[in-house]
């Protein structure tokens, strides 16, 4: 068997103060469920208490669980509550979930997911269940630079985990470069190139001659042929601005 930490989609129920009255919560939740029963019935549900603050010790977790089950959801866990409240919830059969991400981190996380999806077919970086903020610090603490002096050939894949990649030779079409940080190619860049593979939006791509098939930073990707850049075959730098990949001359 394999036990792995993985990220999956969960519905999160954000409780408001008005929801402490379970009967009214039941009515509104039932209404929500009936909007898309195929999607919600038997789907896992996480309860988020961050909006309740101190009020959440008034919550009856046993009754909440029974009510959620009755509506056809599968109650999974509780998060963002004080420790003692979480312990009570735990006794009532709830799992304790990791804190949710801050809104800014949330965005990064999404990009990480998108990228994982994109490189799944190519043994790209494995998905990870730790929050993106944690990843960032991890990357900072153990940065590993990868330097390659030989050409990267068609069919070859290179992955620089937790760091930048530097290639001192050309890369071929049909090759694939993946790095958690930035990628530098001191030669022609011809294959696929994916920087910031785990969601680092500040990662960049640098090359002496831009002839790549596909460029990607933090999951935002573009086929070079679909780009209207006039820098094809020229020294270029690629960076991410918002959701857009910007290709600009190098130097």
């Amino acid at each position: 068997m394999k036990l792995k930490g993985e990220m999956s989609m969960l519905n999160v129920l954000h409780l408001q103060e008005s929801d402490l009255e379970l009967t009214s919560l039941q009515v509104s939740l039932e209404k929500k469920r009936d909007e898309a029963p195929q999607f919600f019935i038997q789907s896992p549900l996480v309860v988020d208490c961050s909006d309740l603050a101190e009020q959440c010790n008034r919550l009856d977790f046993g009754a909440l669980r029974a009510m959620i089950l009755e509506l056809g959801f599968i109650p999974v866990g509780v998060r963002s509550a004080p420790k003692d409240v979480l312990l009570v919830a735990n006794k009532a059969g709830w799992a304790i979930m990791r804190e949710g991400h801050a809104p800014s981190a949330k965005k990064q996380d999404k990009s990480g997911q998108a990228d994982n999806h994109q490189s799944a077919s190519s043994n790209g970086p494995a998905s990870d269940n730790s929050g993106s903020t944690e990843k960032q610090t991890q990357a900072q603490s153990t940065i590993q630079s990868l330097t390659i002096e030989r050409p990267v050939r068609s069919g070859q894949q290179v992955y620089a985990a937790n760091g930048d990649m530097t290639i001192l030779a050309p890369t071929s079409s049909g090759s694939e470069l993946v790095a958690d940080g930035s990628i530098h190619v001191y030669g022609a860049l011809r294959g696929r190139v994916l920087a910031g593979a785990r969601g680092n939006v500040s990662a960049r791509i640098f090359c002496h001659s831009l002839q790549a098939e596909l460029i990607a930073i933090a999951g935002r990707y573009q086929l070079l042929d679909e780009s209207d850049t006039d820098l094809k075959g020229k020294p270029a730098m690629i960076r991410l601005e918002g959701e857009k990949l910007i290709i600009e001359p190098l130097g």
Binding site: P151, V152, R153, S154, G155, Q156, S172, S173, G174, S175
Partner: peptide, 23 residues
């Protein structure tokens, strides 16, 4: 040319010389 490129990659990764750290 592409197929040659592929075989060059295999030469430098799966040959005995490559396995022993050479080229």
């Amino acid at each position: 040319v592409r197929d040659s490129d592929r075989i060059l990659g295999i030469l430098q990764s799966r040959s005995r010389a490559a396995e022993q750290g050479g080229t």
